[in-house]
């Protein structure tokens, strides 16, 4: 690989901005000899399906608390952007037939138990079908896990550099 294009989406997610199109646009512009490095606060699992459908392969690893690196390259049989049919937009989510991923941020820090649990579950109740949730808490949300399981969600919690915890919640 001659060149690495880096997309750091941690700030986007922290500010509640949707990073999906930013990543897909960068992926669409990748040449055969290039790789895309995505830095995210959690493992962006839903992105992987979209990338695979569009002819990309990836590897992901956790490099630090709340920091994941995803390396994306074109599969050998995939066409670079200059070979794509005219008018096609590989970075567009609509091409994959999937709705854009909606990320909701909940900051439940500075609350006495069980307020963080209530705040997260109430937000989750209003989450759209494809939506995902990032919750920040002062402590690892031990009582949240069984509630998520019962409601059909799955979650991963990572300790942050400031001692708080980031829990990424998505539907099973």
């Amino acid at each position: 690989m001659n060149k690495t294009v880096t997309v750091d989406v941690r700030e986007d997610i922290r500010h509640g901005r949707e990073p999906f199109s930013k990543i897909m646009n960068a992926a669409a512009a990748l040449q055969k000899h290039e790789q895309l490095l995505v830095i995210a606060p959690f493992e962006p699992v839903p992105l992987f399906r979209v990338l695979e459908k569009q002819g990309f392969r990836h590897t992901s690893r956790s490099v630090a608390a709340g920091e994941w690196e995803v390396r994306v390259t074109r599969q050998s049989n995939a066409s670079p952007p200059d070979a794509a049919p005219s008018g096609a937009s590989p970075g567009s989510c609509r091409d994959s037939g999937l709705a854009p991923m909606k990320m909701v941020e909940v900051d439940a820090r500075g609350l006495e138990p069980p307020q963080p649990l209530i705040k997260i579950l109430e937000t989750l109740a209003e989450l759209s079908d494809g939506g995902q949730l990032n919750a920040r808490t002062d402590r690892r949300p031990m009582h949240l896990y069984p509630q998520l399981e019962e409601r059909g969600f799955t979650a991963e919690t990572l300790e942050q550099p400031d001692g708080s915890f980031l829990t990424h919640v998505r539907r099973r």
Partner: peptide
């Protein structure tokens, strides 16, 4: 950054 602890399962 702190060493990354394994994410806890449900």
């Amino acid at each position: 950054v702190k060493p990354a602890p394994a994410a806890l399962p449900l």
